[in-house]
Design a binder for these strands. Structure first.
Lengths: 134, 134
DNA sequence: CTGCATCCTGGGCGATACTG
DNA sequence: CAGTATCGCCCAGGATGCAG
């Protein structure tokens, strides 16, 4: 039996590792990055640390601060400090940051609408686990 | 000066850690997962390991196999083995796997169309690095 | 050609405790 | 309340070598 050779789609167009699409995915690959941005967005673009942490169960102070610092470095979030006692801080999405809300919501919406597919994935994994473990 | 209290958006609707949107992002968070799925899709839904590796510069044999095994366990990819010498193997997206091409392409397309925003992110990071390091 | 096993390193992430 | 510092785990992911 002969095997038909498949077309080498990318032979002349190698999938650049740092192409824009990939960079976007990397940006969203952090565990808390998207949830924090999304929460800021839903909160009207701004939130205070305490709120943020209450909104995201499981988020430790350390990871919150660290993620927010990263977002600041990328220019997606800015921080305003009110010099009062006790200190009050507010995090806000920048214009640049707001741009990224769109793809984020697209993805979130798709996920919500296709929960069935995601459930199927989980079920498949559970089956595979049950088959391999014992 | 008074500080207006921000609304606690999620007080009554905590952001579930395992909600569908988050699971989708986790699915896409692997370094090679999406690129492999996307390559399979562009290749008409099927590809052979050699092709795949050539299409994705930087992808090691180990990570390719490992990612493909994971995708198999999730039921997103299936493998067909032709018993010949030398062995010929073909990976194909399943129906379930094909479902996930849609959000993947949405994201990829957005990234390609908004490369400017991503470039800005990189520039901001470079600036921050230059400011902090020396 | 395809695919496993092994070893190793970096960094993401979390728990805890301390400062202003 | 906001933020930092330290410690340690775990695992994604890369390099190498062997086997069918």
């Amino acid at each position: 039996m002969d095997i038909a050779p498949l077309p080498d789609v990318y032979r002349h167009a190698p999938f650049a590792q740092d192409c824009a699409p990939r960079r976007l995915l990397r940006l969203f690959s952090g565990k808390w990055t998207t949830m924090i941005m999304h929460t800021l967005h839903l909160g009207g673009g701004a939130s205070r640390p305490g709120q943020l942490q209450r909104a995201l169960p499981g988020l430790s102070k350390k990871m919150m601060t660290q993620t927010l610092r990263d977002l600041e470095r990328m220019g997606l979030v800015e921080r305003e400090i009110m010099q009062v006692m006790p200190p009050v801080v507010e995090y806000r999405l920048t214009d640049l940051g707001r741009e990224f809300v769109e793809p984020l919501e697209m993805l979130y919406r798709w996920g919500a609408q296709h929960a069935a597919a995601l459930d199927q994935v989980d079920r498949n994994m559970a089956m595979a686990d049950a088959r391999d473990a014992p």
